[in-house]
Design a protein around this nucleic acid. Structure first.
Lengths: 157, 157
DNA sequence: CAGAAATGGTTGACGCGTCACACATCCCCC
DNA sequence: GGGGGATGTGTGACGCGTCAACCATTTCTG
């Protein structure tokens, strides 16, 4: 506990507020555009990306949760909903009676292949086209450092 | 539509993924710590900050929504819950029969005054202590540009 | 090989955010 | 001054994320 607990400087406060604002509005904008261009939510998209990244288009639930950094239960709920829309399906794991695969369906593959180009364009349009090379480098470094700090701080908890 | 619709470069993809990850984990960490140190959620905190920023500790609902960049209905729901916990209360607006003030209660003031120092420390600990001056400058610039692009892109919609 | 503990996954309840709509009040203009 | 639209706010339904508990299976340990 500091003796004074000073507030953030004017400048830091400004950066911090804008940072927070971008943090809420950028995903919201990406989400809106993705929904406008496809029938996928941002979460659906993330799940499908993970599935298409693997050769078999088939991933164990826990591996998927780890890759997405989602809680198991969140993933389970989401998979159930995606299954209902025919984007993925569950399959038993031969060797392990507890396990379950999440498998990309043909419909799911078609959905992400149709959605991906516009989404990538949106990301480039809203983010990468806005910042120049130096800023991007600094941004990447800052992000890496904050992430490292986050992991160090939250690990022992 | 591009003829090729190229994916993002390896480097950009890396930055982008880490950016997204930080975007989800930093607020989550802030939220956890705030909850651990107080009875406030991050949203509660934001609302209370807006109220303490005004001399009268009393703000019109619509002004509050604009300041927070929240939807009116979201704010309405949230105020109802906060009212139930005694953090704020609603008051009629004398001149305008439709309007409503959101007023900070003594309990609400006590809550944020108790929570703020630790929260500010958390922000400094997790963010500002991690990045050096140059990176912070670039980060601020990048955030400003993305925000400007976002507003330009979403305005006509 | 019998428990006990760990692992993989699901479920239910609850708070939150969004969307569409409802509703009252105010303002304007004829 | 009496509609008609605009403005300010609240509500209900629904999808999502979290938390705690649960169940089935596997693995460990004696």
């Amino acid at each position: 506990m500091d003796t004074e607990t000073p507030w953030l400087s004017e400048r830091r406060q400004h950066i911090w507020r804008n940072w927070l604002r971008m943090n809420t509005e950028l995903p919201a904008a990406l989400h809106r555009r993705l929904r406008a261009d496809s029938d996928l939510s941002l979460s659906d998209y993330d799940v499908l990306v993970q599935l298409t990244d693997t050769a078999e288009a088939r991933v164990r639930v826990l591996d998927l949760a780890r890759a997405l950094r989602w809680e198991r239960s969140r993933l389970s709920h989401h998979i159930r909903r995606m299954e209902g829309r025919g984007l993925v399906r569950r399959e038993d794991v031969p060797g392990d009676g507890r396990g379950a695969y999440v498998v990309l369906t043909a419909h799911g593959r078609a959905a992400i292949e149709q959605a991906a180009p516009a989404h990538v364009r949106t990301v480039r349009d809203l983010v990468f086209d806005s910042v120049d090379a130096d800023e991007l480098t600094a941004l990447g470094a800052a992000v890496d450092k904050v992430l490292a700090r986050l992991e160090a701080a939250e690990r022992p908890a």
